[in-house]
Design a protein around this nucleic acid. Structure first.
Length: 274
DNA sequence: CCAAATCCCTGCGTGC
DNA sequence: TGCACGCAGGGATTTG
């Protein structure tokens, strides 16, 4: 379940290996992921030297000459790996890019919730990224910004924080973890959250995301770094998937509860989150 | 406008 | 052993 820290980790690893390398061709074993895989357009645009690998929201962007780029979203179970060109395809390998030096970049995705497509940069980013909210680790995501957006939120806070048009990159795991960190109850009605609390929420989201990036992300089930190793932030999760266990906050004797919000699991401490 | 429900997909754990 | 079922959740879409 790649969220911002996982995608950022993958981005850095791929950038270190792929920048300067050449894509010679594209192939696919499926015709559709979350969207149809348009091989023809991929063949035409994703070719030649990889100038950079960047992250925007939960998307990876590989830049090529002529403002052309490859966009990848990992969905729930997507992963990339680089290996020798003649290595056999594995189960759920979906799209592969033949590279120079007899290697290939392979996109594997068990559940096919991901997206692989070619695009053209509008400015710094492809135009389809226009509806996105600010990056949580950049200046646009402030207490004042979040407070302003929350004025029209009549529903619970936690699903709101997962909306990509409000702030990008925060998914189910880090929304729960960040709200635990700042001791705010995920069930709070958005428009009733104070500016002061917004400051804490913004700060906690940043803190949790940065800490996870330092650990290489959270490997809960499928996520792996491109070299196959696991993200170690799973060891630092305080509420996610800890239903029934004791609260880790010093001095708190609460128990972690699991509730459903918007069809997703939310984890929180009933005692110390207000 | 807003929010909740549904669907997409596959693997895995559970209960019978 | 096998089978039905629920669950995992990012995000688009549908429904209320």
């Amino acid at each position: 379940m790649p969220e911002l820290p996982e995608v950022e980790t993958i981005c850095r690893a791929l950038a270190s290996v792929l920048v300067g390398r050449k894509v010679l061709g594209v192939g696919a074993t499926v015709s559709t992921l979350r969207e149809p895989v348009d091989l023809e357009t991929l063949e035409k645009n994703v070719r030649g030297k990889i100038k950079s690998v960047r992250r925007r929201a939960k998307f990876l962007v590989f830049d090529f000459a002529g403002r052309k780029c490859l966009i990848a979203h990992l969905g729930m179970t997507g992963s990339f790996r680089v290996e020798l060109a003649d290595a056999p395809l594995r189960k759920h390998d979906r799209v592969f890019f033949n590279l120079d030096k007899k290697e290939k970049l392979v996109y594997n995705d068990i559940r096919r919730f991901g997206v692989i497509k070619a695009a053209t940069l509008g400015g710094e980013w492809p135009e389809e990224f226009g509806g996105f909210g600010p990056e949580p680790l950049e200046g646009g995501f402030s207490a004042e910004y979040l407070y302003g957006k929350l004025q029209r939120c009549k529903g619970p806070l936690k699903p709101f924080l997962m909306r990509q048009d409000i702030v990008v990159g925060v998914g189910n795991i880090y929304a729960s973890e960040a709200l635990f960190d700042c001791r705010v109850d995920p069930r709070r009605i958005g428009c009733e959250v104070t500016l002061k609390e917004c400051a804490k929420i913004v700060s906690s989201i940043r803190k949790v995301l940065r800490a996870s990036i330092r650990q290489g992300g959270t490997t809960f089930s499928d996520y792996r770094k491109p070299d196959g190793s696991e993200g170690k932030f799973v060891l630092r999760l305080k509420v996610y998937a800890r239903e029934g266990q004791e609260c880790k906050r010093r001095g708190c004797s609460g128990t972690i509860s699991k509730i459903k919000q918007g069809g997703r699991s939310t984890f929180h401490c009933d005692l110390c989150q207000k």
